[in-house]
């Protein structure tokens, strides 16, 4: 995966079929208002690439441009500038859309449908034959937990059931690329686990999945790579591991001794927190830069005569990393 903030990496070429999605210096500007039309920059030169066969998370706060990005890829919204490719073809291309399954956020399957007729309708729109649809529908409704609900009107479905049906229609034509916008919205924990399992099995079958979600724990559990958007700009992209284990790591150290002694021993270091959990035992959280810094901390504690009973690197969650990145982007000069 290649990425940069604003520059276009040389490795991206138009219609490169090795990547499922390629976006280069993409801009989208909306105009709002009837008379005094205000410009809203939803995407401002975003560049990233999603390799085939990966589960990719597109993250960002509200209004970051995530849904706009997906709509540009699908051709639902026109780009203002830049390049976007999907499955090797220009974004919005009708042939490219044949290989894409899409679950929009807050989608509305027409109320006159049942589960079965909805799948028949969307299957036909995707160019499938009736036998193909019938065969896939049975399996998919079972897979998303709606096997018994195929003949029930959609208007009787709960929010979660509608989300499951939406997922089924996205998967119906066995797409090469699956784009899911808030897929677990309204889905119960069991359903989420099942969905995660299903996504992993799709990945095993070399399907590419782009997930746009606010639920960072879910993303962390299933995604290989993520990209974080903020105010239409790509702030950071990489693997989950890269984002959660960066230079700002911490070390948790526990000693036999009191809080004051530990504080004194670590006075030379960037201590985040010192506390006395139980009498005779103290614990501290210290920022570390590298392994040498860790060795120096251990030496300092031992030199103070304190016995180390706990030593563990403190890893950031994705959510912490996300908040940090968004916060940094918000305070950084434009």
């Amino acid at each position: 995966m290649n990425s940069s903030d604003n520059g276009a990496p040389a490795s991206i070429t138009a219609g490169d079929s090795s990547a499922a999605i390629q976006v280069r210096d993409l801009h989208k500007t909306y105009r709002q208002g009837l008379i005094f039309r205000k410009r809203v920059h939803a995407l401002q030169g975003t560049t990233f690439e999603v390799p085939r066969g990966e589960i990719f998370g597109l993250l960002g706060p509200n209004g970051a441009g995530k849904t706009t990005m997906i709509k540009v890829l699908l051709g639902v919204v026109r780009k203002s500038a830049g390049d976007a490719y999907m499955l090797g073809r220009p974004a919005g291309d009708r042939i490219a859309r044949r290989g894409v399954g899409y679950l929009p956020e807050n989608h509305r399957i027409p109320r006159h449908h049942t589960g079965n007729t909805a799948l028949e309708y969307y299957g036909r729109l995707a160019g499938m034959t009736y036998p193909e649809i019938r065969k896939r529908s049975i399996d998919l409704l079972g897979m998303v937990g709606l096997a018994e609900w195929g003949n029930v009107s959609v208007k009787n479905y709960s929010k979660g059931m509608q989300q499951r049906l939406g997922l089924a229609q996205a998967l119906l034509h066995d797409p090469e690329l699956l784009i899911l916008d808030e897929p677990t919205d309204g889905v119960d924990p069991v359903g989420r686990a099942e969905m995660r399992e299903m996504l992993r099995s799709l990945k095993d079958r070399r399907r590419t999945i782009l997930i746009n979600s606010h639920l960072l724990q879910e993303v962390e559990l299933v995604c290989d790579h993520v990209a974080i958007l903020h105010k239409g700009k790509l702030q950071q992209a990489g693997s989950i591991k890269d984002l959660t284990q960066n230079a700002q790591a911490s070390l948790r150290i526990g000693v036999m001794g009191d809080e004051a002694a530990l504080s004194a021993a670590l006075s030379e270091f960037a201590v985040q927190q010192v506390k006395q959990n139980v009498p005779g035992q103290a614990q501290a959280l210290v920022e570390v830069r590298d392994q040498a810094n860790v060795d120096q901390i251990i030496d300092a504690v031992r030199s103070a005569g304190l016995s180390i009973i706990q030593l563990a690197p403190e890893k950031r969650t994705l959510e912490e990393a996300f908040v940090q990145i968004v916060h940094d982007a918000g305070t950084a000069p434009p």
Partner: peptide, 18 residues
């Protein structure tokens, strides 16, 4: 109007149709 409502239209337009 129902066909072009938000939520329905983006699902429809994501399919390979003109």
């Amino acid at each position: 109007p129902q066909t072009f409502e938000q939520g329905a239209i983006d699902l429809l337009l994501s399919k390979p149709v003109s």
